[in-house]
Design a protein around this nucleic acid. Structure first.
Lengths: 266, 266
DNA sequence: CAGTGGTCTAGACCACACT
DNA sequence: GTGTGGTCTAGACCACTGC
């Protein structure tokens, strides 16, 4: 370890045997475990370890990076806290995925008014539409593209216990998702983000949601089977892959008479 | 350290000099740092260290509990991650508070449509009402009381740039908040939770919010100056002190034409 | 300068899962 | 038993703050 430029730090204890560094005391200081974290992140991003697979053991990584186990540990701790890795005692450390059935919808915060999370069985997914279009200005901006760039637009409805509850429009950048079709979407039975991982190597890592109360337009009323004038929850989500690169814009409309959006504050 | 019953663990390295423990291998296992965490938590709860004050240094705590600095460190790390403590390098570790002007409203997730968080200056608070009542069934249930128990009911309006934006009703258990009056609420200029800390020793530690889209009733229209039929965000919050004891139920109605509710997912 | 939290190491042992 | 992550210690040194 200790080969990257931003290391005015010179290691600790027995780790201090670099050649004379270029800058004797540069302004930026980055702890070793942060550099390790970045390296692991790069391996994840490069697809060196596939989703749900185990990464090398802490000892192996420590040997590879020439640092102590504790330093690797702290790097992994942070990645696990960010839900990029999952630790399992006695088994190993694994690459997180959206395909685990434990947390079916990692990013969905909607819960039924009464009953547990799984008391109403799986959701029914219905893809209404999927087409390639030229990105409107707002979509392009959210995805870091230029207006007119090719994007995929998908519209779908999620139902719980046969009640249409969520209507979503989502936009994906055309290049990384080349080859995505209605058939492909309809053929998958898991979460959409699991399909993105498996088929396109795109892993959604975090997201931001902007929530508002709105009234539905005509189309939305029809698809959700709600009357005009019924208040609905508008959820605009931007989802990001590694390095905060936006990869999806999603505009959803939720019914909140049978369900509610839950948030935990601390 | 190592005096509490749930320690079938016998310490590590030089820390293993207990007398013969009662249970040779009881089922529950609690790591040392968890026990330290509990002890620190108890001191916080008991008010041994006041909000915004510094707690003893890691070395001091290590000596007090007869464990290594690293073990205290891990306990404090978790408490800091839960926002109960705040670490400041070179200065010390401090008890978190709602009275810091950095994070004016720690639990408020509402942001203006455009502009930064502080671009619209401080909120104007207006206490509409404050009275003692007997708890209705739903309020009692949320606060862990019995129906009819005395509770305080407060109604207030928050305005941003002179636009009434939030209308909130909140209920507080009567006993811990004995002596809370309209005057006292109006006399304070900081966040309400800061007042609760300073005047009643009640510290809100986490909260759960249930969010829905609703239409306002007559009263709400008047107080928020919005037309009937305008969709608004309903935010029901239960706030908890230590040990998950509920201490406040809050039902808020937010305008979401000028602002939006933000949530970060990961 | 001394005191605080922050990083890093090396080594020991524990709890858990597979084989 | 072997290998994995999890805990704990002891000691060193670094970075930041304030006297």
């Amino acid at each position: 370890m200790n080969t990257a430029p931003p290391v005015p730090h010179e290691g600790a204890a027995s780790n201090a045997t670099d050649a004379a560094s270029a800058a004797p005391s540069s302004p930026a200081f980055s702890p070793l475990y942060q550099q390790i974290k970045t390296l692991i992140l790069q391996s994840l991003q490069a697809g060196e370890w596939k989703p749900s697979a185990a990464i090398p053991s802490e000892m192996e990584l420590a040997a590879r990076f020439k640092v102590s186990q504790g330093t690797v540990r702290k790097a992994i701790d942070e990645l696990a806290a960010e839900n990029l890795l999952v630790r399992r005692q006695g088994k190993g450390t694994f690459v997180a995925t959206h395909a685990e059935q434990h947390v079916q919808y990692r990013f969905l915060r909607l819960f039924p008014n009464s009953g547990n999370l799984n008391s109403e069985g799986p959701a029914q997914r219905h893809i209404v539409d999927c087409k390639r279009i030229r990105a409107p200005a707002d979509v392009a901006k959210a995805l870091g593209l230029r207006s007119g760039d090719p994007v995929l637009q998908v519209r779908r409805v999620l139902s719980f216990q046969a009640i249409p509850t969520i209507l979503e429009d989502l936009w994906l950048p055309g290049t990384p998702f080349k080859g995505l079709t209605v058939e492909r979407l309809r053929g998958s039975d898991g979460p959409m983000y699991a399909l993105f991982e498996a088929e396109f190597g795109v892993r959604m890592v975090r997201a931001e949601e902007k929530i508002r109360a709105v009234l539905p337009d005509r189309d939305q009323c029809t698809l959700l089977a709600v009357p005009v004038g019924a208040p609905l929850l508008s959820v605009e989500r931007t989802a990001y892959t590694y390095n905060d690169v936006p990869m999806e814009l999603r505009r959803g409309i939720y019914r909140t008479d049978t369900h509610y959006y839950r948030n935990n504050l601390s």
